[in-house]
Amino acid sequence: MWFDTWSDIVRILAVGAAAYVTLVLVLRLTGKRTLAKLNAFDLIVSVALGSILATALLDTNVTWAEGLAAFGLLTVLQLVITWTSTRVPSSRSVITAKPTLLLRHGDPLEQALREERVTMGELRQAVRATGNGDLANVGAVVLESDGTLSVIPADKMGAATALDGVERPSRA
């Protein structure tokens, strides 16, 4: 339980170093998007990459080459998905959730909050985090496709062109 053999430790060190270098190279070759916090698909890929690294390190039945193949498969699949979503607009809605307007001109949009399962407490917390103490000073709060809440102060709303493409409940 505490120690089996030195060969197991040496294997972990050797495969771990090789897998780490491989992962860094794969991530550098595939660009920033591979680990971006953009949507659920990106999160899944990030978690899966970590799982592959852990499995390659600790499972003696998995070789470095198999780990490399798994890293490669995930990154190629992500490149295919992101290429498709940027060139075939209709596919984007399948891959990524649209941002949703939760508050407009200081008024919470109850229907949107309910549909997105966001509480008023979470909405207020996001507003407070921006230094605002009054919802009336907020022009909009948007639940982004990555799950974050964006707060736009009322005095910064302008023509609200940043809200283009944001889903709005029928009463917004």
Rank of each mutant, 00 (worst) to 15 (best):
L43K: 10
L43H: 08
I44N: 09
I44S: 14
V45G: 02
V45F: 02
V45I: 15
V45E: 00
V45S: 03
S46D: 02
S46C: 10
S46I: 10
S46T: 15
S46M: 11
V47M: 14
V47K: 08
V47P: 05
A48T: 12
A48W: 03
A48H: 01
A48R: 03
L49M: 15
L49Q: 02
G50N: 07
G50H: 08
S51F: 02
I52V: 14
L53G: 05
L53D: 03
L53A: 12
L53E: 01
A54D: 05
A54Q: 06
A54H: 04
T55S: 07
A56W: 00
L57H: 04
L57C: 09
L57M: 12
L57Y: 02
L58H: 11
L58D: 00
L58M: 07
D59T: 02
D59S: 05
T60I: 07
V62M: 08
V62P: 07
V62L: 09
V62C: 02
T63Q: 08
W64R: 02
A65P: 01
A65M: 14
A65Y: 05
E66L: 11
E66F: 07
G67P: 11
G67F: 05
L68W: 04
A69I: 10
A69N: 06
A69E: 07
A70H: 06
A70N: 09
F71C: 06
F71G: 03
F71Q: 05
F71M: 10
F71D: 08
G72I: 03
G72D: 03
G72H: 04
V76R: 09
V76D: 08
L77F: 11
L77E: 04
Q78R: 06
Q78L: 06
Q78D: 02
L79H: 11
V80P: 01
V80C: 14
V80W: 07
T82S: 15
W83A: 14
W83I: 06
W83K: 12
W83V: 09
W83H: 11
T84E: 05
S85E: 13
S85R: 14
S85G: 09
T86I: 07
T86W: 11
T86Q: 13
T86R: 15
T86A: 12
R87T: 12
R87I: 00
V88N: 04
V88M: 12
V88G: 02
V88A: 11
P89C: 05
P89D: 07
S90N: 06
S90Y: 10
S91V: 12
S91C: 10
S91P: 00
S91I: 11
S91E: 00
R92W: 01
R92S: 12
R92K: 15
V94L: 15
V94P: 01
V94W: 15
V94G: 05
I95S: 05
I95Y: 09
T96V: 13
T96S: 14
A97E: 08
A97R: 14
A97C: 05
A97F: 02
A97W: 00
K98Q: 14
K98L: 10
P99M: 08
P99S: 12
